[in-house]
Amino acid sequence: MPEPSPLILDDVVITRSGRPLVAVDARIAPGEVLTLMGPSGVGKSTLLAQVAGFLAPAFEAGGRIRLGDDDLTDAPPERRRLGLLFQDPLLFPHLSVGGNLAFGLPAGDGRAERRRRVDAALTDIGLSGFADRDPETLSGGQRARVALMRVLLAEPRAMLLDEPFSRLDAALRDEMRRLVFARVRERGLPTLMVTHDREDAEAAGGRVITLTAPGH
């Protein structure tokens, strides 16, 4: 695996019809989790969408987004290889649990080898034997773990977390926090998280940037 690179947000500014909405300038080292905090409506998720490559056409963006020396600013989302974890697990209902994981795996290898890697990934998150299950039959916590594993199997170069724990109940939330942060550290992935929950930031243990509503 190549040496992990830092994720760099170089004077990234998002505006809406000319008015600035949110501005961030940051360098996230490999294995570091940077948390963006703030009430809803300050543009946290919009910023994340810009980093991921999904900025809605109603917004304009300035500044550069880089991964090491690789400038991602104008790359389509699929070329960025940034693992994006959404609020909802969003497992594909037309695929089995194993199919969802295989969807994340890069192409190549034989069918048997892919199946072996999917099984190993399931064992890794305590779900061995679940490959042929329908995602609908999983509990909320199980779905969240499969979603995380699907992202990791795609071999991302950095992680983007969009309020990833907000839909989980309190007990699961702790467990998922530990799992997610352990995995990004272990792989040395620079990670950008947006949240409005202070406990998320504390669990991440990294720097926190607090955004305020524009004009304040």
Binding site: A52, G53, F54, P76, P77, E78, R79, R81, L82, G83, L84, F86, D88, L90, F92, P93, H94, L95, F103, G104, P106, R150, V151, A154
Partner: peptide, 25 residues
């Protein structure tokens, strides 16, 4: 839209993401 986003953030091109993640639904 969500299916498309998930697939593209996993590295699938627009058309491949649509055919593999949206069309079956």
């Amino acid at each position: 839209e969500e299916r498309l986003r998930v697939a593209r953030s996993l590295g699938y091109g627009r058309l491949n993401a649509f055919l593999r993640a949206v069309l079956p639904g």
